[in-house]
Simulated scan of single mutants.
Amino acid sequence: MATLTIWSESGGVGKTTTALNLAAALGRDEYEVLVVDFDPQPASLTDHAGYTKRKKADREATIVDALLDEEISVTDVRIEDELFDLVPAHESLASLESTVRAEQISMAEFLLRSALEPVESEYDFILIDPPATLNLLVDNALIASGNVLIPVEMTRKGERSAEGVIETVEALERQLQRAQPEFTLNVVGVLPNKVSGSTLNREVRTSLQESDIELLPVTVPDYNVLEQAWNAQLDIFRFADHDEHGLRPYQEQLPEVYRALADSVIERMETESATRQVSVE
Rank of each mutant, 00 (worst) to 15 (best):
T99G: 01
D85I: 10
L111N: 06
F125A: 06
V74C: 02
E103D: 13
S121A: 15
D76G: 13
K56H: 15
Q104I: 01
A102K: 14
A43W: 02
P40Q: 00
T133E: 09
A108Q: 11
A108D: 14
V100R: 01
P130F: 01
R59A: 07
P131A: 12
D39F: 03
E82Y: 14
E32T: 13
R113M: 09
E82M: 13
A57D: 15
S121K: 10
E70F: 07
D58L: 10
L96M: 04
T46I: 06
D37M: 02
N135Q: 05
A108L: 05
E117N: 11
E122N: 06
S98Y: 05
P42L: 09
E117I: 00
E60T: 13
I63W: 05
D65I: 10
I126P: 09
R54Y: 13
F84Q: 07
S95M: 07
D37H: 03
R78H: 11
V33G: 01
E97S: 14
L134C: 04
A108H: 06
D76C: 14
D58S: 13
V77M: 13
E60K: 15
K53G: 06
M107A: 13
S106N: 10
S121Q: 09
A132S: 14
D65G: 04
E82C: 07
D37E: 04
I79K: 09
D39V: 00
G50M: 09
A115P: 02
R78K: 14
T75I: 07
E97Q: 14
D37T: 03
E97I: 00
I105R: 11
L134G: 03
D69Y: 07
A57G: 09
D47I: 04
E70S: 12
V64K: 03
K56G: 07
I126N: 09
E71N: 11
I72W: 07
P42W: 05
D39W: 08
D65Y: 04
A61F: 14
Q41Y: 07
P88C: 05
A89M: 04
L86R: 04
L116E: 07
T133W: 01
A115T: 05
R101G: 06
D76H: 15
P88F: 05
A108N: 05
D37C: 02
A49V: 12
T46S: 01
L83M: 09
T99V: 11
F84L: 03
Y31A: 14
Q41I: 00
E82H: 11
V77G: 13
E103N: 11
D69G: 08
E122W: 01
Y123H: 08
E70V: 03
